[in-house]
Amino acid sequence: MPILELHHLRKYFATQKAVDDISLTIEKGQIFGLLGPNGAGKTTLIRMITGIFYPDEGDIFFDGKKFDPINDISKIGYMPEERGLYKKMKIGEQTEYLAQLKGLKRSEANRKIKEWFIKFDMHTWWNKKVEDLSKGMSQKLQFVTTVLHEPKLIILDEPFSGLDPVNTNLIKDEIYNLAQKGATIIFSTHRMEQVEEICDHIALVNKGQKILDGTVKQVKQDFKEHLFKVSFADHVTPEHLAIHLFEVKKKDDNEVVIKVDPGYSNNDVLQYFINKGLRIESFNEILPSLNDIFIRLVGNTPTARQFQEVTA
């Protein structure tokens, strides 16, 4: 059963159709990447899922029932893109407070915070104030406050920005862990290599609309360009490369990248090289990176989203 279903969500602001008819289904235990250029409407979409905004139109179903912000938000953990904590408040106290607001009892909160602080090597921070922390450190703290109450659905807006590689890995591992334990994770980012590494499912949003949705594997399959890299034990000469089977994209001494023409199979190509007497060392399909797909899909839209008159 999906943990989250969005049906035709719409949210218009005076100057922008921030979210314009988006439907999505997110299954339990998924790590879901929400992608899109700046101003696409990701944050607005997330704010509707976290109960911060009411959608103008459309329905949200959470865990099989109609989303009821008052009761359901305690099952959601949300880390906004602009991190925020009380600067002057002691860290231990603040974390306890935020956990209590999510419905945890104080003693329970206290116990969990201690566990997390030990796990993340933060146990000396308890009586410090947030203003004493560096940006990356407070980021780690923010992550802890987001997941402390063991939410079923964790929403992270740009979770890795500002973290060094060690802490990035720490958080990444934690995201895997949480997904293993059954939590569903949605995160929005512009960093495609991270998406490829972590997510099993993605949706791409542009100008308030969903333009792509699927598993990372499937999306790559859908956008593949039938490119293959073939390497040989022999030297490749131009006369080895006929023109009717494939198009040569790149050529080295004993390696070529080819685009197989429609209507021919991989076997046809291999057969061809064998007949030419070349010794093949490897034959690999090159799948497009998400980055390429992203640029291909939204590359032709203006770099900055333009404002529009919204009537309705």
Binding site: I73, P80, L98
Partner: peptide, 13 residues
Amino acid sequence: TNRIAEVIVSSVK
């Protein structure tokens, strides 16, 4: 300005 508001309103109204 501390941006804590968004964190809190994801827990309370």
